[in-house]
């Protein structure tokens, strides 16, 4: 329960950054924080007390294992997150090349 709430606090910190910060770098970092907290929450949800990791080993027989399904989903989600970060960084670098600033309040001409 406490761990769920702390994970949610981490998510809210990232959300606060996305809403209030004005430069693109901080917004990218906030999105990364939101992604971390979501991944971590799914894995915390999958944990079983005293259980073994879901990889069989030769010569040992384990009865209880943690839930492998959220682990498989999060593994792909981490990769997608890095791809999105790369896309956002590329956009930010291009915008800097055009406007010479990361401040989104100054990038007005984007509106058209």
């Amino acid at each position: 329960m406490t761990i769920y709430l702390m994970c949610f606090i981490l998510f809210l910190v990232g959300f606060y950054g996305v809403i209030t910060k004005r430069d693109l770098v901080k917004i990218i970092l906030s999105l990364a924080i939101m992604g971390y907290s979501t991944n971590l929450f799914l894995i915390i949800f999958a944990y079983r007390t005293g259980a073994h990791y879901p990889i069989l080993e030769k010569g040992t027989s384990v009865t209880a294992m943690v839930d492998p399904l959220p682990q498989a989903l999060v593994l792909t989600s981490i990769v997608i997150e890095l791809g999105i970060t790369a896309l956002l960084v590329a956009l930010a670098v291009r915008l800097y090349g055009k406007y010479k600033t990361f401040d989104i309040t100054k990038i007005r001409r984007l509106l058209g």
């Binding site: 770098v25 991944n39 894995i43 960084v89």
Partner: peptide, 30 residues
């Protein structure tokens, strides 16, 4: 580190490597 405590060594390796890569991309770009 939290993934290691939660019995997910697969994810711990992948998260560690991707974190290093993300830091390199961010530093190189900005």
């Amino acid at each position: 580190v939290a993934f290691l405590f939660l019995q997910a060594p697969d994810l711990a390796i992948v998260q560690f490597l991707f974190e290093i890569f993300a830091i390199i991309i961010l530093i190189k770009a900005f």
